[in-house]
Design a protein around this nucleic acid. Structure first.
Length: 566
RNA sequence: CGGGGCGUAGCGCAGCCCGGUAGCGCGCCUGCUUUGGGAGCAGGAUGUCGGAGGUUCAAAUCCUCUCGCCCCGACCA
């Protein structure tokens, strides 16, 4: 393609609205433009990237035995009411009424629609297993869309749904998708890791997220330095400590801590380590208030707490509630003297002796408190997020932490949807059975954004070859007849060799072309100018490492087809 | 939903505190020169100052309401 025939509005300066590298660069390189918060137009260059990612996904899904179909974007309320999600999904589900005043929503995901299809059309185990997928635009009315394509309200997603006769077969379907996802993200040129993920209250048997490793990722993941264990911190299990503090208990006493409310303030004031302070967090679960004890330097994990308490509503108690429950302003809550309230402690508390705790009185804490002597704990449990340095729950090493962007998620659903929607089939014995389901998603736009996040420098994007909008950026720099002739010939030859070429035929100065090319990030740039042609050569630059090679024009196509494989 | 910030030319911003002719850089248009890492000179076009109401002789500027966007948090894939 010629640049003059494409709308590629590059920006010289960073747009004010963007924060992260991928968001800035996708705007600056002319890939996307915002229409409303979290809603974007894919410009020609951006769409080419999207299509490439889609094509890779398509090929690997087909290879894994899934079949493509396309479901509607709008779906009727009735289906969602059957599974209860019409009420459960909340404001994220964008609802509207048609002219007959019937309720509809824009699909944020398609379990209901696909399960409805299955129950209507599939009768027998002979037709199974089945795996349907689509690549389609979803709409979720996100609380806070951000980072461009990373978290939009409208976004392109590949979603797949498997239907099996039993758990064992469903596991095979799951494994096939897990393997396909590995191939997909590898082919996209991404550095990623599959991690164990939270299954939430849905309670399926297993779930993995595919995380592209990047510092700007919204998720924290931990992995073992000595084995294969890797998990989202939300999920990663923390083992109870094995080393108990052996210090002799000292007598409990109160200490004055004027104005010290946070862990940092209190420990600094008393000159003790945060690991020797036990913080008391009061949580409201909708119905009741509960006290959780954690080590001062540990972080409460609300996903785990929800799971433990079997609640969906969970938030830190308001200052008013804290005052009601403890009789002291927030910041001085402690377990001693708390009445009519459940007290659950993180495993780490068990190992501690002679700790500092809140005094339930203004400006007061207790020191040298010991849980088995000074206050009661109903239960010890895993309440905190794993952190770097913790032992791996598989006992195969020590955990390290990194940030990741969730680009894919595979999920065993079990019979959650087939049960509520009565999606059954007849088995070998003529018995009616519920289909065992799995669902599998990939964020297409997010994958492209993650690729930029992982492959860029100060100048711009450095696309991995398989998803680059163009393979070669052809840059004629001078106006001579010779340059024009060589450029035209190269354009034809490179395309004949199967390469996608963007020909910068604009009447721009060399510097402008170079900078735009670096910004747009095609893996290779071929520079044609009188300076080189005097010696009979053009310049081939590799975007990633900046390596420049002078070659006779006739050798360029062969050279590029050879190096693209590496 | 809570906290913070921003809406002024296509883009990035100044002007607002202290009311009085709407500015700068980039981009855009014309001409000449230039031509291998975001050219120079000369000339030119472009604004419902997010919107509505109010105060005032006078509002980008002060007040009230409202809409949009960004950041942090909660939530979520």
């Amino acid at each position: 393609m010629r640049t003059s025939q494409l709308l590629i509005p590059t920006l010289r300066e960073d747009p004010g609205e963007a924060e992260t590298a991928s968001h800035k660069l996708m705007l600056r390189a002319g890939l996307i433009r915002k229409v409303a918060a979290g809603i974007y137009t894919y410009l020609p260059l951006g769409l080419r990237v999207i299509r490439k990612v889609e094509q890779i996904i398509r090929e690997e899904m087909n290879r894994a035995g899934a079949q493509e179909l396309l479901m509607p974007i709008a779906s009727p309320a009735e289906l969602w009411q059957e599974t209860g999600r019409w009420n459960f999904y909340g404001k994220e589900l964008l609802r509207f009424k048609d002219r007959h005043d019937r309720d509809f929503c824009l699909g944020p995901t398609h379990e209901e629609v696909i399960t409805d299809l299955f129950r209507r059309e599939v009768r027998s185990y002979r037709q199974m297993p089945l795996n349907f997928y689509q690549i389609q635009t979803k709409f979720r009315d996100e609380i806070r869309p951000r980072f461009g394509l990373m978290r939009g309200r409208e976004f392109i997603m590949k979603d797949a749904y498997s239907f099996d006769q039993n758990e064992a077969s469903a596991k095979l379907s799951y494994q096939k998708m897990y393997d396909a996802y590995h191939r997909i993200f590898t082919r996209c040129g991404l550095t990623f890791r599959a991690v164990e993920a939270d299954t939430g209250l849905i309670g399926g048997s297993s779930s993995h997220e595919f995380m592209v490793l990047a510092d700007t990722g919204e998720n924290t993941i931990v992995y073992s330095d000595g084995g294969t264990y890797a998990a989202n911190v939300e999920q990663a299990e923390v083992l109870p400590p094995t080393d108990m503090d052996t210090e002799a208990p000292r007598p409990l006493h109160t200490v004055q801590t004027p104005g010290c409310r946070t862990v940092e303030e209190v420990t600094k004031f008393l000159n003790v380590s945060p690991a020797r302070l036990v913080k008391t967090l009061l949580y409201s679960t909708g119905k009741t208030t509960i006290a959780l004890l954690l080590r001062g330097d540990h972080e409460a994990n609300e996903v785990k707490i929800r799971r433990l308490l079997r609640v969906t509503d969970l938030e830190l108690a308001t200052p008013t509630v804290v005052e009601q429950v403890t009789g002291a302003p927030a910041g001085f809550a402690g377990p001693i003297g708390l009445k009519d309230i459940r007290i659950i402690a993180d495993h780490a508390i068990k190992a501690l002796r002679n700790v500092v705790i809140g005094g339930n009185r203004n400006d007061t804490h207790y020191a040298d408190a010991n849980w088995d002597r000074d206050f009661q704990i109903e239960q010890f449990a895993d309440l905190r997020s794993a952190c770097a340095g913790d032992p791996s729950p598989r006992k195969d090493g020590t955990l390290r932490a990194t940030r990741g962007i969730e680009v894919g998620h595979v999920f065993m659903l079990g019979t959650k949807y087939s049960e509520s929607m009565n999606a059954s089939f007849l088995d070998l014995h003529g018995k009616e059975c519920l289909a065992v389901m799995g669902c599998y998603g990939i964020g297409v736009g997010r994958t492209a954004a993650a690729a930029v996040e992982q492959n860029h420098d100060a100048k711009g994007i450095m696309w991995p070859f398989p998803i680059a909008p163009f393979h070669v950026h052809l840059l004629p720099l001078t106006q001579s007849a010779q340059t024009a002739q060589v450029t035209a010939q190269l354009y034809a030859e490179l395309q004949a060799a199967g390469l996608e070429v963007l020909w910068d035929d604009r009447d721009e100065r060399a510097g402008v072309k170079f900078n735009d090319a670096d910004l747009m990030g095609a893996p290779f740039q071929v520079v044609v100018g009188d300076k080189g042609l005097v010696d009979g050569v053009v310049e081939v630059k590799t975007r990633k490492d900046g390596m420049k090679l002078k070659l006779p024009p006739a050798q360029v196509a062969a050279h590029l087809t050879r190096t693209q494989m590496i």
